[in-house]
Design a protein around this nucleic acid. Structure first.
Lengths: 193, 193
DNA sequence: GCTTGTATATTCACTAGTCGGTATACTTGA
DNA sequence: TCAAGTATACCGACTAGTGAATATACAAGC
C-alpha cells in the first residue's frame, strides 16, 4: 500500500502535470510520464492504480495552487472590487501570451473526457471551478457588492469563455473583452454608499 | 484525385461526425470510422490524406448547419433582440439536457489539439466562431442595438463559458445564468427610442 | 459493335510502432 | 524475516498509414 505523502508519488504527479498540460491527457503515455519522473512504469503503477487515477490526481494537485494564484492577483491589485476582478483577467491575458500556455487544464481535461461524464478527473475539475466561484462570491460580498453569487457566476462564465476563445483563436483580445465586461458588471453592483 | 462532392466522401464525413462528437477525436480510430461508413480504411485514405485532414473536414461540415440552427432559434423567438438572444441560450439549455449532448464540438476539438495550434481543425473552429460572432453583431445592429460588435463578443464569451461550464458541471443552470446575463447586456444597449 | 486505354474508386493484407497494464524477481532497510 | 518499493521484460490489443492488386465506368479508335 503506497503512502499518499510519498516523495516518489509527488515526483510522478509533477511529471504528469507537465506532460498532461503540455500535450493533453490522451496524447501522453504512461511510459512517457514514468521516464520523465525518472522511474519505471511498474513503479508508477505501484503508486497509482490506473492512468485515470493519475489524471484525477493531477487535477486535484492543481486546485489549491491555481486558487492561490487567482487570489494573489486579486489581492495585489489596487482599487475597488471592479479593478481587482479586472486584474485577474489582465494577468490571465499576460500569461496566456506565453507560448507554453495551453488553456485551462481543468476545462481541457473535461473536454477530452466528455464521453465519460463520471470520470474522477471531471469531478475534480468541477470541484475546482466551484471552489473558485465560491471564493470569488465571498470576496465580492466582502467588498459590499450586491448579489455576489449571481455576479460571481457571471464572471466565471466570462472567464471560462475567455479561456476557450483564447484557445481557439489565439487572440488575447478575447480575454481583454471578458475582463472589461466583468469589471462593468461589478461596477453596476457596487453600492453607491 | 477524388471528387470533393463524392457521396462516398460525404458518408465518411457523416460517420466521422457522429464518432468524433460522441467520443472525442483522440478516442476514435480511423478503422472505426471506416467501419461505421461501411467501407475499408484504404478507401477512406483515398478520399482524405490523413486523419487530421478528416478532423478538419468534420468541423468545416458543421459550420453552416450550426449557424443555421442558431439563426433559426433567434428568428423564431418572439420579442426584441434581448428575448431573441436569450432564446438561443434557452434552446441550448434544452438540447444540452439530452444525454447525447457532449458540449461544443469546435471547442472540444480545440481543447484536444491545444498542443498543435496551427492544426487545420483548430483554424476551422476559429472560422466558425468568428462567423457566429459576425452574424450576431449584424443581427444586433439590425435591431438597433448600440455597440453591436462589442456586445456580440460579450455574448460569445458567455456562450462559450456556458458550453464549458455545462461540460464540467453537467448543470444546465450555468447556461440559464449565461442567457440571463446576455439578455441583460442587450437590454442595457437597446436605444430607448 | 467491339476493343483497348485510362482515370476513378475500392479492397485485402500488411507494416512498424504504441498503448495500458502486469508477472516475476530483485533490493533495501527495519 | 518481512514488507515496501523498484526494475526488467513482457503481453495482447490497438494505432495511423501503405503497397499492390483490382473493380468499375466511360471514352477513343476502328
Amino acid at each position: 500500500m503506497p503512502e499518499a505523502s510519498s516523495p516518489t508519488r509527488k515526483r510522478i504527479v509533477d511529471a504528469a502535470t507537465k506532460l498532461f498540460y503540455a500535450e493533453g491527457i490522451g496524447r501522453v503515455s504512461v511510459d512517457a510520464i514514468a521516464e520523465k519522473a525518472g522511474l519505471t512504469k511498474r513503479t508508477l503503477y505501484y503508486h497509482f492504480k490506473s492512468k485515470d487515477d493519475l489524471i484525477a490526481a493531477y487535477l486535484d494537485a492543481r486546485d489549491q495552487p491555481n486558487l492561490k494564484q487567482m487570489a494573489g492577483w486579486f489581492d495585489a491589485a489596487e482599487g475597488g472590487a471592479d479593478r481587482k476582478v479586472e486584474a485577474i483577467f489582465t494577468n490571465l491575458a499576460r500569461v496566456a501570451r506565453h507560448p507554453k500556455w495551453k488553456g485551462c487544464g481543468f476545462l481541457r481535461t473535461a473536454a477530452e473526457l466528455a464521453s465519460m461524464p463520471g470520470h474522477p478527473a471531471v469531478k475534480a475539475g468541477s470541484r475546482h471551478k466551484t471552489n473558485f466561484e465560491k471564493w470569488l462570491a465571498a470576496e465580492l460580498s466582502a467588498h459590499g457588492v450586491t448579489a455576489p453569487h449571481m455576479l460571481a457566476r457571471e464572471i466565471v462564465l466570462l472567464m471560462d469563455g475567455a479561456f476557450s476563445s483564447m484557445l481557439i483563436h489565439h487572440n488575447p483580445d478575447y480575454i481583454g473583452a471578458a475582463g472589461h465586461a466583468a469589471a462593468t458588471l461589478v461596477r453596476a453592483r457596487i453600492s453607491s454608499s
